[in-house]
């Protein structure tokens, strides 16, 4: 019988909640006794996805961001979604250094960081409807 657990939260699309979201996921995942490095990677990836939802999904307007995390044995799956404007061209958005908002001093490295720090990153986006990012990581600590 495999171990399972899950949690779900939603919060307003405010930049203050970027820290809240990554700390909430880190606290939930800590039951798997991850390494410092694994926790740091997960926090960074969550921060990138939530920041995208705040800046690009809702363009700093009010909206709701949904975050869920499931654990199956040592596999962590994190889903972050918004009901914002969606991404016009997902493969372009995933290119390193591409940013649709260069005026904001954004690096365009968000998806690259998520991909580097997680095992798998899936992006589903429909223009005008929203974006969902699903990230998976198998922890080595157990």
């Amino acid at each position: 019988m495999e171990y399972q657990n899950s949690m779900k939260i939603s919060f307003m699309s405010k930049s203050q909640n970027e820290a809240f979201a990554r700390v909430a996921v880190a606290a939930f995942v800590s039951q798997l006794d991850p390494t410092v490095e694994e926790i740091s990677e997960i926090k960074t990836a969550v921060s990138e996805a939530v920041t995208n939802a705040v800046i690009h999904g809702y363009e700093d307007m009010e909206g709701e961001i949904f975050l869920s995390c499931t654990i199956k044995d040592n596999l962590v799956e994190i889903t972050i979604s918004d009901k914002g404007k969606g991404i016009e061209d997902v493969s372009r958005a995933r290119e390193p250094l591409y940013t649709s908002k260069p005026e904001l001093e954004r690096s365009g490295m968000g998806f690259t960081v998520m991909e580097a720090f997680m095992d798998e990153v899936e992006v589903e986006s429909v223009k005008g409807t929203g974006t969902t990012v699903i990230m998976r990581k198998r922890l080595t600590s157990i």
Partner: peptide, 9 residues
């Protein structure tokens, strides 16, 4: 902690 926002800075 630093994410890619730091790279932009």
């Amino acid at each position: 902690f630093m994410d890619s926002s730091g790279i932009g800075v």
